[in-house]
Design a protein around this nucleic acid. Structure first.
Lengths: 170, 170
DNA sequence: AGATACGTTCGGGATAATCGAAACGTACTT
DNA sequence: AAGTACGTTTCGATTATCCCGAACGTATCT
């Protein structure tokens, strides 16, 4: 590839950032290293390529590439007449935006579901739960709005959103 | 508090959701349990309260409440003439919105920084890195936009954003 | 000063996550 | 059929994390 030492050390920044980002999100280091490596490659990489480049065993690479694929960070590319799986980093802005939003979306729906279930169950409960019920209602309202907002945001491109919001009066 | 069994099982949904949400974000179960417990309480809770209610030791509660405070999920309330720390769940919509966005913000700034550093270093590197540099430039553009969008989003309330975006033509 | 009631920090033991080697399944080739 | 080149799964060892009890520091009382 590019064995220039200066060049390689330049790439380290990105890999480090990916590792740190992975750790923040609760994933392991390998995830970050693989993500960074994939992004910095000019061509698609196979599992063996990734294993060789990162130093991780093939099983570890396989496991984590499947995870990255599920997260929408990596994408498997099939080349006809080639058994191997080739991976590329997802670079389409809209897909990347979606990836950034998934965790918030998941959180909103998770909490929203729970709030609605609790609200229902508290209704058929003898005890005096007025105060809690109003708190839950407020919270449900917030997450409902958040959910709605996320849906709207995913309809526009980042560019469009910036345009819309920067023109709006506060 | 409210020892009604039906009522208690209703609350379980919320605590479970908080635990699941915590796990998704890479935090431990205690974080989720504490967050849920705090939210479901009608009054502020002390460390001892939280320890008694959740069954976790005081040291564990202390550790994780500091984390929740740093995350902006819990808030310490000081009552004059009382040594104890009282905790409440942050329920202000704008603060909650900010909490939801922090991870994305962190990711964007982390990656953006790394991209800029790498870009700079690759400039003073002999090897032919045209292809990678253009990839990095594209990526930097995306994260720059994302950063800008996040800044705009934090200027408005969720309600305002919904209003603005739902009126906009696609 | 001593006692008390806090929050916090510090080991250590249990528990879970991580990773590599090897086995496995499968499709294609010879 | 045997061999090959893949991706995947399993298993065990290493490693890191979680959580508790105990010790500690520090105000505020008595």
């Amino acid at each position: 590839m590019s064995p220039d030492p200066t060049c390689e050390s330049a790439k380290r920044h990105i890999i480090d950032a990916c590792v740190q980002s992975a750790k923040i999100k609760g994933y392991n280091d390998a995830c970050g290293v693989l993500r960074g490596t994939l992004f910095l490659s000019e061509e698609p990489l196979s599992l063996d390529d990734l294993s060789r480049t990162t130093g991780y065993s093939k099983s570890t690479v396989c496991l984590n590439m499947n995870l990255l694929e599920n997260l929408g960070i990596a994408q498997r590319v099939v080349i006809p007449g080639d058994k191997r799986s080739w991976y590329v980093a997802v670079s389409d802005p809209n897909s990347m935006k979606a990836v950034l939003l998934t965790n918030i979306k998941k959180e909103a729906q998770l909490i929203l579901n729970a709030l609605e279930q609790t609200e229902r169950d508290l209704g058929s409960c003898g005890a005096n739960t007025e105060k809690i019920q109003s708190k839950i209602a407020a919270m449900r309202h917030f997450y409902k709005q958040t959910d709605e907002l996320l849906r709207l945001i995913s309809r526009f491109t980042t560019e469009e959103l910036i345009d819309l919001l920067s023109k709006a009066k506060i």
